[in-house]
Amino acid sequence: MQKCENCNMPFSWGKITKSIGWLYKPINCGTKHKITFLSRCRVVALGTLPFFVFTYFLTPFNTYNVNIGIALLIAIFIILIAPYVVKYRRE
């Protein structure tokens, strides 16, 4: 996890998740930190690529309930790891 460049206070997982969830809202701890463009691309790729791969190549189950359940597990996994792949810079 990243921390503030000025006060060295680490950004919490919850703050980063809220920042991503509110359309990349900056994190403010006295200094405004904005998500980098490359990190935005990582979040989008992390969110879309697993679903495309699963939907088009790995759907071995004939029931929709199992497919939806696996898709939800993928979504939860993405939400859990997204804060670890983003970087912020001081604005």
Rank of each mutant, 00 (worst) to 15 (best):
Q2D: 11
Q2W: 09
K3C: 04
K3Q: 12
K3W: 01
C4W: 00
E5M: 13
E5L: 15
E5R: 02
C7Q: 13
W13K: 15
K15I: 11
K15D: 12
K15C: 10
K15S: 13
K15E: 09
I16A: 02
I16V: 14
T17L: 13
T17C: 11
S19K: 05
W22D: 15
W22A: 14
W22M: 14
L23M: 01
K25T: 04
G30R: 13
T31G: 12
H33L: 08
H33I: 00
H33D: 00
K34Y: 06
K34A: 11
I35G: 01
T36K: 14
F37T: 04
L38R: 15
S39T: 01
C41Q: 06
C41S: 07
V43S: 12
V43F: 07
V44L: 09
L46P: 01
L46H: 02
L46D: 06
T48F: 04
L49H: 01
L49C: 03
L49Y: 03
L49T: 02
P50F: 04
F51I: 02
F51T: 08
F52W: 04
F52N: 06
V53L: 08
V53W: 00
F54C: 05
T55W: 05
L58F: 15
T59N: 12
T59M: 12
P60S: 14
F61E: 11
F61N: 09
T63I: 12
T63A: 13
Y64V: 13
Y64T: 09
Y64L: 07
N67G: 03
A71S: 15
A71H: 12
A71N: 12
L72M: 04
L72T: 11
I74P: 01
I74L: 01
I74W: 01
A75T: 06
A75N: 11
I76K: 14
F77K: 03
I78C: 02
I79L: 15
L80N: 14
L80S: 12
P83K: 09
P83E: 01
Y84N: 04
V85F: 07
K87D: 13
R89S: 05
R90L: 06
E91N: 02
